[in-house]
């Protein structure tokens, strides 16, 4: 019996280690590629770097104006995320709680889902034409709007189960205590679903941060380049891939996501521990 337990422990340990290697190795590989010099990169690669250089990082900033791309990416991601969260959460709450005339709730929800299900390229061209008509194309607005467009349906559907899972008694008692609709939403409901919001915010952040298709179609000026766009020029079908610079750019672009996720985790745990109803 004891032995069985021990062997299970060992098995579990090996499995975790394997999974850990499986998930972390790409990150390690990227870091190790980014610090090798060019000569090593084009010869046969060993598991551990044999040279050390920060040239690739420096080159990104000097030659590819990477700082600009980082600022643009941050600006686009945070603006679109803020809009998408505000609009998405409100919509989601209403869709979870309100009753609709003519049984419209089902069709509306389905319609929202469609935006997410239809391949993005289907939207890209009509949007391009619209944005062009409004002569918005040489601004960041089309990209921001497109990111909001992709993220809102996701937020609505993700949060729907959180909102409808809330015990209605809480809202009722708040109403009896004299809370207005807005107070109810902002003070009572939102804190209760904070873990959900955090999770959906991290996911939306990633979607927007890594988004390439809308970026490449809408961005018309080098001053509006985002990180994925900037990195794509380093890895062309026609040219040799510049592994060092790509890896360095990948690492830099990883940092904000990691920071955001760590920061958001605080809310993930906080939300879980707040008991609302005594059962």
């Amino acid at each position: 019996m004891r032995r069985n337990k021990k062997s299970r422990k060992i098995l579990r340990g090996t499995c975790s280690v394997l999974i850990l290697i499986w998930t972390l190795f790409p990150v390690y590989w990227m870091i190790s590629l980014s610090i090798r010099d060019d000569a090593e990169l084009i010869s046969s690669l060993s598991l551990f770097p044999g040279s050390f250089t920060v040239k690739h990082f420096a080159q990104l900033f000097v030659r590819n104006n990477f700082l600009m791309a980082i600022i643009n990416s941050l600006y686009i991601t945070f603006t679109s995320l803020a809009f998408a969260l505000i609009l998405g959460l409100i919509c989601s709450y209403i869709l979870a709680r309100a009753r609709f005339k003519y049984k419209l709730k089902g069709p509306v929800l389905f319609w929202v889902l469609l935006v997410r299900v239809i391949p993005p390229i289907a939207f890209a061209l009509p949007l391009y034409i619209m944005m062009n008509k409004f002569s918005l194309l040489n601004t960041k607005i089309p990209v921001i709007l497109a990111h909001i467009l992709v993220n809102i349906p996701f937020i609505i559907w993700y949060m729907l189960s959180f909102f409808s899972g809330l015990p209605e008694e809480v809202e009722e008692s708040a109403e009896i205590d004299g809370a207005s609709d807005m107070q109810l939403f902002a003070r009572i409901v939102i804190p209760l679903v904070m873990p959900g919001i955090t999770a959906v915010a991290i996911l939306s952040f990633m979607t927007s941060w890594n988004e390439y298709l809308y970026g490449v179609i809408f961005v018309q000026s080098p001053s509006n380049f985002t990180i994925p766009l900037s990195l794509s020029t380093l890895n062309s079908e026609q040219e040799l891939a510049q592994w060092g610079s790509i890896a360095a750019g990948g690492i830099i672009s990883l940092v904000p996501i990691a920071l955001f996720a760590i920061f958001a985790q605080i809310f993930l745990i906080q939300g879980l521990s707040s008991g609302a109803v005594k059962e």
Binding site: V216, I217, Q220, S221, P222, T233, E237
Partner: peptide, 14 residues
């Protein structure tokens, strides 16, 4: 003069 540097296939698309 503003130069928009794009990856080849993106360039053609744009």
């Amino acid at each position: 003069i503003e130069v928009l540097g794009l990856e080849a296939s993106d360039l053609k698309q744009k």
